[in-house]
């Protein structure tokens, strides 16, 4: 669907995007994750053909964005960082303009725009001038604009930035809904958003792709440990005995807990599952387990880990990339 090969963007001596390679299949939702200035917007601008790449190619649905711009752009709906709305138009006028611009047939326009306005929930403001709309509504109008013409690919640059929590949830649900019919690339520096919406996450930093994998697999890329947080009713000494009986545990850190209970996190080597072992061990000595939860790394941890130190990470990056290629 989308193929990005060796994409490079230089501004003078500054390397904004450095040899980016990835491909997106039909129906996928890809999240672009990276700190501010990582090159997310630049990459998106290159994919949509707004700016040109210094090197490399972008192929959308078999059409190269630079050789066949019109065919390629027909497949893309783009919501840039700032919704590209004309503030002196009403919402409806604006969407009609976009439909005409994208070459939607005249007889299909009316129905399509009605459908989109209903879906994005902007039909109640359809007659208002865009300059009088709030940020959240403008963002929605921007999203509506991207969907006009029902392109196969949607590219959304920080779609929820500047919205209030309720609106964020609404937009996210909307994106999930859209993902049923469209291939979506979205960028964000909000990690919970990416993990909520996307099935694949690409972390980029300083223009380089650091990790690209399924959201749930990301924690595998972190060398280190899995942890299990437990609260057990019983004496500390007794619990200690139990834990010593389980060989896989490498480290235990105790936490504050209520009278008569013990709270701790037990760490193991990666991939070891000690939940059953702990259950039976506790059952044998009649110590009830009050709570048990695995504390695998959150996306935040992964993100910070991945982007914190370029030089020490380089080896790891290679490993990750080769692992990806082997698949």
């Amino acid at each position: 669907m989308i193929e990005v090969k060796g994409l490079v963007k230089k501004y003078g001596d500054h390397l904004a995007v450095d040899n980016l390679n990835f491909s997106v299949d039909k129906g996928q939702v890809i999240g672009f994750l990276g700190p501010n200035g990582a090159g997310k917007s630049t990459t998106m601008n290159m994919i949509t053909g707004y700016i040109s790449a210094t090197e490399g190619s972008v192929i959308i649905n078999g059409h190269d964005v630079y050789d066949e711009p019109e065919e390629a752009k027909r497949c893309i709906g783009y919501l840039p960082e700032l919704p590209p709305v004309y503030t002196d138009m009403t919402v409806k006028e604006y969407l009609y303009f976009v439909a005409e611009l994208k070459g939607v047939e005249k007889k299909r326009r009316e129905g399509m725009i009605k459908d989109i306005m209903k879906r994005i929930q902007i039909d109640d403001v359809s007659g208002r001038l865009i300059k009088y709309l709030s940020k959240g509504y403008r963002q929605r109008v921007g999203l509506a604009q991207a969907i006009v013409g029902y392109p196969e690919v949607l590219i959304l640059d920080e779609p929820t930035v500047g919205l209030d929590p309720k609106q964020i949830i609404e937009i996210r649900d909307l994106i999930k809904d859209l993902a049923k019919e469209h291939t979506i690339i979205l960028s964000s520096h909000i990690l919970s958003e990416v993990s909520a919406v996307c099935d694949t996450v690409m972390i980029i930093n300083k223009g380089k792709l650091i990790v690209s994998d399924k959201t749930e697999n990301l924690s595998k890329h972190i060398s280190g440990t899995d942890g299990l947080t437990l609260t057990i009713k019983g004496e500390k000494a007794l619990v200690n005995e139990i834990l010593k009986g389980i060989k896989e545990i490498t480290k235990v850190t105790y936490k504050k807990s209520e009278e008569g209970t013990v709270s701790f996190t037990a760490y193991t080597e990666k991939g070891e599952d000690i939940r059953e072992a702990i259950f039976y061990a506790c059952a044998n000595v009649k110590c009830p387990i009050l709570s048990m939860s695995s504390s695998s790394m959150s996306l935040e941890d992964i993100f910070l880990e991945m982007t914190k130190d370029e030089t020490s990470k380089k080896k790891k990056v290679k490993k990750v990339v080769t692992a990806k290629e082997e698949k």
Binding site: Y50, Y86, K102
Partner: peptide
């Protein structure tokens, strides 16, 4: 200035 050129130049029209 309004960045609406992003809409124009990413639409399927030269």
């Amino acid at each position: 200035k309004q960045k609406t050129d992003q809409l124009l130049f990413t639409s399927p029209i030269s």
